[in-house]
Nucleic acid binder design. Structure first.
Lengths: 259, 259
DNA sequence: ATCATCCATATTGGATACAATCAATATCAT
DNA sequence: ATGATATTGATTGTATCCAATATGGATGAT
């Protein structure tokens, strides 16, 4: 079994390793689900708020029918909660949800890298190096910008996210386990990515810590040292989880939805 | 000795500890999704077959609208594949899908038990003991029945599944990680459970092997030995995965759907 | 015969219409 | 005034309708 995709086309899809991204033509419902989901993540529909079908329909210039189907999908994805005859409300994770999710993610990305060590190609390692380089540069830039003007750094944040996703994405891809990839992506859904960046970008020291953890991961995987790679990856993610929990708790619970 | 239930109607019911089970009133779409899903698992809608909305609507005496929404949910759950303007077809896992899923599940249940060891109560261990006792008895019964009359054992199979689920369910519950529980349940969706039981119930020696693996797990968790518990749990599940893959390959690919 | 093209039909996709349910206010009795 | 009940409006849930697209068979050319 090789880590390479036989049908190859999607392998290098650097852009947003998010889940599905059906945001293209001829997939109206999927596209709607993505767009609604994006607005939830962006905070436009805050946690706990009701999503009215008619309002969404008007906003996206469609009828309620495809909106309803999109909401059914988001319900299964765990982004919203749907109560009979009462419609949909936006879910928000509490500290425990975050802790639980990161514990699972740490385990799964640990598995991913221990598999990846075996199969990863030089080309993939090179992609990780480049992603890491960009990552480090952006962090420097963010920290520098933070010291002068707080506004400037905002437009670099997407790049920060993207290079981080690329880094982790290569590892997951190289694991050769498609189901593993899917499960990890599902874990990200909605909150994880968002909260992590919120938690990290608020503190220069923690961003640098993050960079050096990536460095350690890259070093271990380059040496094909499965034990060490797994150890540092797991630590890296658990640490990110701690930060996310702290950040969430410092924010005062936004939506302590008792799901 | 080969598989006993060659014709489509094998392995009915089973539904027990599945994920959501919204099959009650006032949740029509959820209920429809469950019922359609159940029929897929039961083999009534075989892999690769098209699910026509009108046919389903008539079968369940509703209009196409709730059917469509149920199909959207099943799409996200990975039970069916939905192609634009071409409707839904039933997905079937191939050997690789099974391998991938079991690898992930082994890791996650390994995590579960290593967490559970810390927090599990005597009452929960007692539940595991009882489940294990039932499990062993049913296996004896199945093997005995198999030697005389092949039909008899079919009505015990659901009990076999249920006691096995109870055993694993206690561990997962005792892990205290709700997200972990959800992710593991999602992994079961559709095929995993079904294939495992198909693979195992065809061979007495393997069923006994399974029982003794449970015994080892129970022993380790009773001694609160996290390392050993994890080791035997992981081995147990990976072994089950191997059997499932073998079984699937021996069946000649039913649906080698190129998803 | 084999293959491509075209047309009739079946099926899906989306919008609208109607029924059922809920929320919030108004009304009434105590 | 307080609490229970009734009523109105808003919102969700299901069914039906029409348009867009695909499917499958017939027709015709090579």
């Amino acid at each position: 079994m090789s880590a390479q995709e036989p049908d190859g086309t999607n392998l290098l899809s650097v852009a947003t390793l998010s889940a599905s991204m059906a945001t293209s033509a001829e997939q109206l419902v999927g596209s709607l689900a993505d767009r609604i989901s994006a607005k939830i993540v962006a905070g436009e529909y805050p946690p706990g708020s009701r999503l009215r079908q008619e309002a969404l329909a008007e906003e996206f210039s469609v009828s309620r029918t495809p909106i309803r189907e999109a909401l059914r999908q988001l319900e299964v994805k765990g982004v919203i909660q749907h109560r009979p005859n009462q419609g949909a409300i936006v879910l928000a994770p509490n500290a425990r949800d975050i802790r639980d999710a990161y514990q699972v993610r740490a385990e799964l990305e640990g598995l991913a890298i221990s598999l990846a060590v075996e199969w990863i190609t030089d080309e993939q390692i090179e992609r990780m190096r480049r992603a890491q380089k960009r990552f480090a540069e952006i962090v420097d830039k963010l920290i520098a910008a933070r010291k002068s003007n707080a506004k400037t750094h905002l437009k670099d944040v997407p790049n920060w996210v993207e290079s981080n996703d690329e880094f982790h994405g290569v590892v997951i891809e190289a694991s050769g386990n498609r189901r593993l990839k899917q499960v990890i992506q599902d874990l990200h859904l909605g909150f994880t990515r968002n909260i992590m960046l919120s938690a990290l970008t608020m503190d220069g020291r923690r961003m640098r810590e993050n960079v050096s953890q990536h460095e350690a991961i890259l070093s271990a995987i380059s040496r094909h040292d499965a034990i060490e790679a797994r150890k540092v990856m797991t630590h890296h993610i658990l640490r990110s989880g701690e930060l996310a929990v702290w950040w969430l708790e410092s924010q005062g619970r936004l939506g302590d939805s008792g799901r």
